[in-house]
Design a binder for these strands. Structure first.
Length: 343
DNA sequence: TGTATTTGACCAAC
DNA sequence: GTTGGTCAAATACA
């Protein structure tokens, strides 16, 4: 195939994938809307004592739609062996064509060898540092006062980052060598508040060794999810709704896909939150939708918020409601969803 | 002695 | 050319 036809194929495929991704995001938004609608209805029904059990047909339908989009995009992405269309992170995750993914090292790296460091030991020093930068699949950012979580991490690097005071630390799952777990995280101390860390999680854990780590660390309850891929954000928001409802202890949820969260405090000491859209036009609708969801949710449950704030509430606004176990539950929910929707 | 961390080097992406 | 992410040897620690 000549280069022109390659480019044409790539272009067409990219457009198709873009359209599918857009549809996927719309479906996700619809799911969010429905979930809020249902949660409001459930609260009303609870008050009136008429709660009906069983899964909602609309939810099931949405799940099927999302699954279809996911499958189609995955098929498209794997179908053409020539094209190298980068599927946006909202749906990426079923495969990763980069060398950073240990299972798919390119031929340019160690002759197609795995990226696993132990296997690299047999390779000459000239290959040191050979890798392909990971695509940001399934990333989300958490703001927290401590970097520990229920997983065991091993630090593998530290780097001075431009225009930042503090270096960024790089961690990978301790179980990567034994179980091939690909989860990594990056930790950076906040310049504005050195007690706070911005933790970026990349990929999810495939290891089965969370329990022992869990016993070593205390759950933390002062997180803010600042940024995430849209699917993750939507799912987390959705799942968090459910968790909060289940525990009947509801607070504001700060999950904003591809946007920033700002906060301000009014004279009454009440925190308002608004979204600063820093995204592209395509993302804006989703960001705004998430903000609307957020405001709806906050308005509805505002009187519960202080239950979740730890320490000085005057300086802590809208810290994420769920603790570490909640976070893990949400994450597991997301993984379960991804698992069921995968081919 | 085994394991974890540090740090300079390397390389791909931008 | 610059920057960020990763590797892996050197080092620290239990």
């Amino acid at each position: 195939m000549d280069s022109n036809s390659n480019k044409s194929t790539k272009s067409i495929k990219k457009k198709v994938v873009d359209q599918l991704v857009e549809g996927y995001e719309f479906a996700t938004q619809l799911q969010l809307l429905l979930s809020h609608h249902h949660s409001n209805n459930n609260i009303d029904q609870t008050r009136s004592g008429s709660v009906s059990g069983g899964p909602d047909p609309a939810d099931e339908l949405i799940a099927k739609i999302l699954g279809s989009f996911h499958k189609t995009i995955s098929v498209l992405d794997t179908f053409d062996p020539v094209a190298d269309v980068s599927v946006p992170i909202a749906v990426e995750g079923s495969r990763n064509a980069s060398c950073g993914d240990d299972s798919t090292a390119p031929a340019s790296c160690n002759g197609g060898d795995s990226g696993d460091s132990k296997k690299r030991l047999g390779v000459g020093k000239g290959k040191r540092g050979c890798y392909t930068r990971k695509k940001r699949s399934h990333t989300w950012t958490v703001k927290a006062r401590r970097i520990e979580d229920r997983y065991a991490w091993r630090k593998y690097g530290q780097k001075e980052i431009l225009n930042t005071t503090f270096p960024r630390s790089y961690f990978r799952c301790t179980h990567k060598p034994t179980q091939g777990c690909k989860a990594t995280k990056q930790v950076q101390k906040q310049e504005q508040d050195p007690e706070m860390f911005q933790i970026t999680y990349i990929g999810y854990h495939t290891c089965t060794a969370t329990d022992q780590a869990h016993t070593k660390t205390e759950p933390f309850d002062d997180e803010i999810i600042m940024d995430s891929d849209s699917t993750m954000a939507a799912t987390m928001a959705h799942a968090n709704d459910k968790v909060q409802e289940q525990e009947n202890n509801i607070s504001g949820v700060t999950v904003v896909g591809a946007g920033n969260v700002k906060e301000e405090e009014n004279n009454n000491g009440e925190n308002k939150e608004y979204c600063e859209a820093s995204s592209t036009g395509e993302d804006l609708s989703l960001v705004w939708q998430d903000c609307q969801d957020l405001m709806m949710f906050d308005d509805h449950h505002q009187h519960h918020q202080n239950h979740y704030y730890r320490g000085d509430t005057s300086t802590t606004s809208h810290h994420l409601a769920f603790d570490n176990d909640h976070f893990s539950s949400l994450f597991d929910s997301y993984c379960a969803y991804e698992g069921t929707s995968a081919i």
